[in-house]
Write a protein that binds this DNA or RNA. Structure first.
Lengths: 219, 219
DNA sequence: AGAATAGTGTCTGTCAGACAGTATCGC
DNA sequence: GCGATACTGTCTGACAGACACTATTCT
């Protein structure tokens, strides 16, 4: 069925799925199989299906379920993009979400045979993505950074148990600049978002104490 | 034309238009003339018209133009609300915006004969608005407060020239708590969002210096 | 002992709230 | 002068960065 967009806009969702790997912030890109913009890299996304979705966020989760086999802890709206020209099919609305994939769940990524997939450096600025997805990406990064800087911690990007050093590294990678160890620990100990565990990781040096997010924590 | 919402959701915008008056933060409410929810109070809103609107924000500005005869300096997205049940007409998406009406422009409000209009106290919690607009309103207030607290100033709610005392009152009204005069002035003088003028308002006491927003200011 | 990383203590500058004090108007 | 409001100066406590220091493991 073909329908002009004169009465109803196309409504879809796009997702910036972040993870941290290889000492950098990474975002999932997919190579589009179909027109429009076939063969170009884009953020994963899809059209809203009213008979399947109970909200835009659940549409985003449905789209993500095709890429990642676990339920993601955090899927949050960034903003909308809209207009008659951003999609060649006509007047369209895209609601952008971001989501976080914990470090130890990267094996949950579904390898598709029909679609190429890549974890691109989210902070490098020279992607030329399909549609207006380059702008989508920079908005999502900005929102993520604002959240992290506003003293909320990117715990969803870590495994359930982690050391303060790991948390600090992830925070530094997202913000793009180094943090002082002492002040970082001070803030964290006071924040009550963390619970100390009586467990330690052993390594070739002094063991590090493990922590987990407190029950009340919500990013 | 009647169409089920099985393929295309209804897409609309709603706006929380704020102003400050009578020592409180006020929001514009309209009494709905038509079903659904006829005769109930709601935020002003309307359906997206792809042939008229070049984006969701311009749809919001079009809706506002029916209520206020001036172009508003700030119209900004808050978030979306969506789902099959929030509007009895079927699956729908509402994109919420907020906008600010300067104090000295309240005369620009268009008095409609077919529609009742009210400036309600935005912080009182006992509105029972149509649809999910009560939740819309609290989200919009929260976003406005976050902006104002994050040291950005609600200059758009003031006339072009104003005294620091006026700015402080408006900020206090929005945040809901008093601020220290000295620290407030200190912040402001350093912020470079303000320009001092060589003008003073005379009254029954010491004259107060006038300020205006600097060119580079953007809320 | 030495290397390596975990974790602590302390100094210091910045900044915001509190609040008292000074300035300038009308009457 | 007095009341009222505009505006300033100073004290103080909270906090964050800098950085040196101690602690605990493995080899």
């Amino acid at each position: 069925m073909v329908m002009t967009r004169e009465l109803f806009p196309l409504v879809g969702v796009d997702i910036a799925l972040f993870c941290v790997g290889d000492e950098s912030l990474r975002v999932m890109l997919v190579r589009r199989a179909q027109a429009p913009h076939a063969k170009r890299w884009a953020l994963p996304g899809g059209i809203l299906k009213p008979h399947l979705d109970s909200s835009l966020e659940s549409a985003a989760r449905r789209v993500l379920a095709e890429k990642v086999s676990i339920e993601l802890p955090l899927v949050e709206e960034v903003r909308t993009f809209s207009g008659p020209d951003r999609d060649p099919r006509g007047w369209s609305v895209s609601v952008l979400f971001y989501a976080l994939l914990p470090l130890d769940k990267t094996s949950a990524v579904v390898k598709s045979k029909i679609e190429a997939l890549e974890w691109a450096d989210a902070l490098s600025t020279d992607h030329k993505l399909a549609f207006d997805h380059s702008e989508h990406l920079s908005c999502a990064v900005q929102k993520l950074r604002a959240k992290v800087a506003a003293d909320v911690l990117p715990l969803h990007l870590l495994p359930e148990k982690f050391t303060l050093r790991q948390l600090q590294r992830v925070t530094e990678i997202i913000l793009g600049h180094p943090l002082d160890k002492s002040s970082f620990r001070r803030r964290l100990k006071e924040s009550r978002d963390l619970v100390e565990l009586d467990e330690y990781v052993r390594g070739p040096q002094r063991p590090a104490q493990l922590f987990r997010a407190s029950e009340s924590f919500s990013f």
